[in-house]
């Protein structure tokens, strides 16, 4: 004897849920393609000279390159902008370990940035006394039609916890 309970509503509810899930995941793929479009690889590579201690008053680097900094130690990345085509629109941005943007240059033509030897300093947020500890990542991207389309290089350094 089979039980009289009807399991079809449960079955169809699960299938409906699966269909909605597929739709959501497909929307995700569209988001990915829209904001990280395929076929944008130019073969250019931005060269980061290094990340240096930075003197905010003079606006110049101050000391040898390093991969580790103290919280109260300003630092900036030096990029070889002249290796990129002068007309290529690019920008460079620092992200802290919470993925918040903490300093940038551009977007501007690489030639312009090369002319003024633009550094990319990390800017301590106004509500903090010093940089947060953790990993900081510099991302250099190319723009096309006002939209970032290609990652040209990235570089990471660490801001140490206070001793």
């Amino acid at each position: 004897m089979r039980s009289p309970e009807d399991f079809r509503p449960l079955y169809w509810t699960m299938l409906g849920l699966g269909a909605v899930a597929l739709l959501i995941l497909a929307l995700g793929v569209l988001t990915l393609l829209r904001f990280a479009p395929l076929g944008q690889h130019t073969g250019y590579h931005a060269q980061v000279d290094g990340v240096f201690p930075y003197n905010a008053r003079s606006g110049q680097v101050d000391g040898p390159p390093s991969t580790h900094f103290r919280r109260d130690q300003p630092f900036a990345a030096q990029v070889e902008w002249d290796r990129l085509p002068a007309g290529m629109v690019v920008s460079a941005r620092w992200y802290d370990s919470l993925d918040s943007e903490v300093g940038s240059v551009g977007p501007a033509p690489a030639g312009q940035l090369a002319d003024r030897r633009a550094l990319v300093p990390v800017v301590t947020p106004a509500d903090l006394h010093a940089n947060l500890p953790g990993s900081y990542t510099l991302k250099i991207v190319r723009y096309s039609g006002g939209q970032p389309v290609e990652l040209l290089d990235s570089e990471s350094v660490v801001v140490l916890h206070d001793p």
Binding site: Y11, M14, L15, L17, G18, V20, A21, L25
Partner: peptide, 24 residues
């Protein structure tokens, strides 16, 4: 559910729903 095909289908739907909810 009585049939293997149905069972596999709803298990897959459960996983998809969880992944989609988390993804969203």
């Amino acid at each position: 559910l009585p049939r293997v095909g149905q069972r596999v289908m709803v298990i897959a739907c459960g996983f998809l729903a969880a992944i989609a909810a988390h993804f969203a």
